[in-house]
Nucleic acid binder design. Structure first.
Lengths: 237, 237
DNA sequence: ACCTGAACACCGTTCAAGT
DNA sequence: ACCTGAACACCGTTCAAGT
């Protein structure tokens, strides 16, 4: 059986990723990638189609609307949390370890997808009590189980869930914003004018600007997280 | 010189808010109102024009682009903070009182503009260290002055500013989200199907659903705020 | 000086038609 | 079964033209 040339494997040297076939998962992944590259504003059914080597209209066989596309992209991205080996779906070394791992996992996810994260933060969830950035029944269940098993009352577990959510949301949204993420244009041409703000009227800002511009996000995160855990510890019975 | 009738004063009794004249401020206020009514997604140059009794093209005499319109709306809304008599631009009864008033003022503002708040939270600011939800050099200066005057070191004041920002952002974004705000459609027709999620696979959620649906946002806010102040107190020298 | 009509390039989405 | 072409209603934005 000589195989002098395989006829399907040939990549023809096209530089972009090939188009193995259209399906929902592939469209969503391409969408996530597109947003990470150009920002949510530029994601268009037509441009995404082009990206996939297909007419925009073809996407409608797999995705009912642009809104649904965005929701799907958010889902596909947060689903990565399940694949993070550092994050356990149930506590193994106590609830603090569980929460630390979960928090760090979400932070890694946010930093890996700074342009998608604002969508994770602001897209409506399936129920008002399914809060970003967890966004899934499965993780909320996991969270509550971890705490109640550790001796938290039902109410305390719920309170902890809420405090944990808003802590993560605030910190991570600000951290990705500082990376230049936004729901906005990201004008390819001019990557945003240096715009050295006029601080003449703000003496304190002037003298503190350097300090304000330092990136302390990691320390901030760790300290606030630790303080949150202390606070939660007080809720435990 | 008899003046039997003045020719410019007549109001003609039109019922809707009059169109006294087109100007930037009026457009921005109309925009804020529009977003609060229909959601950011529905705000269109053309629809806003119609709302103001004018063709969309006329807006371009005052507003260079839709992006600029959104930024202007955000600005106009946060500027309300200056008009809140409960919020002091400089501390009068100590830094804790100052921070409490500032936090409560921002919460009132968020609750008064639940549809605009996500824009306040996610629109890019003029410098990365000007964080939402304060978003203005003037408030950052005010904040830092309040704390340094109270004996905080420069670094501690900056740390406090960051912690305060992310606390507010997380809490308020989640609170307005629970009110049904989103950067999304708000389909007038169906105000979102009750969508009673299937919880059969999540026993804990099932038994805690009632508790999870309770609105405890005020207590949450107060408790987290108090805990934040405690944390900041530890930074003070 | 201020507003408008017409036009351009681009959207999301539908549907009959092609392969 | 899957993709496309043509079409519709709607955008943001520009600009010459009207009053």
């Amino acid at each position: 059986m000589s195989e002098p040339e395989r006829r399907d494997g040939g990549d023809k040297g096209k530089s972009t990723a090939e188009k193995p076939r259209l399906d929902r998962q592939r469209i969503l992944e391409a969408g996530a990638e597109f947003i990470e590259q150009f920002g949510p504003r530029h994601l268009t059914m037509r441009r995404l189609g082009t990206e996939l080597g297909v007419e925009a209209m073809s996407l409608y066989r797999y995705i009912p609307s642009r809104e649904n596309l965005l929701d799907g992209i958010v889902e596909v991205v947060i689903d990565e949390l399940y694949k993070d080996p550092e994050v356990y779906p149930e506590p193994r070394h106590g609830w603090q370890d569980y929460l630390l791992r979960l928090a760090h996992g979400l932070r890694r996810l946010a930093l890996a997808h700074p342009q998608v994260f604002p969508l994770i933060a602001t897209r409506p969830t399936e129920a008002p009590w399914v809060r970003p950035p967890l966004r899934s029944l499965r993780w909320v269940e996991s969270f509550l189980k971890a705490l109640t098993s550790a001796g938290f009352s039902d109410q305390a577990a719920v309170d902890a869930y809420r405090a944990f959510s808003s802590f993560l949301l605030g910190h991570l949204l600000l951290e990705v914003a500082a990376m230049g993420a936004d729901v906005g244009p990201v004008d390819e041409a001019e990557p945003r004018p240096p715009r050295s703000t006029d601080l003449s009227d703000y003496p304190l800002l002037q003298s503190l600007q350097e300090r304000l511009s330092e990136d302390r996000s990691e320390q901030e995160f760790e300290e606030a997280l630790e303080s949150l855990l202390d606070r939660l510890e007080a809720l435990q019975n």
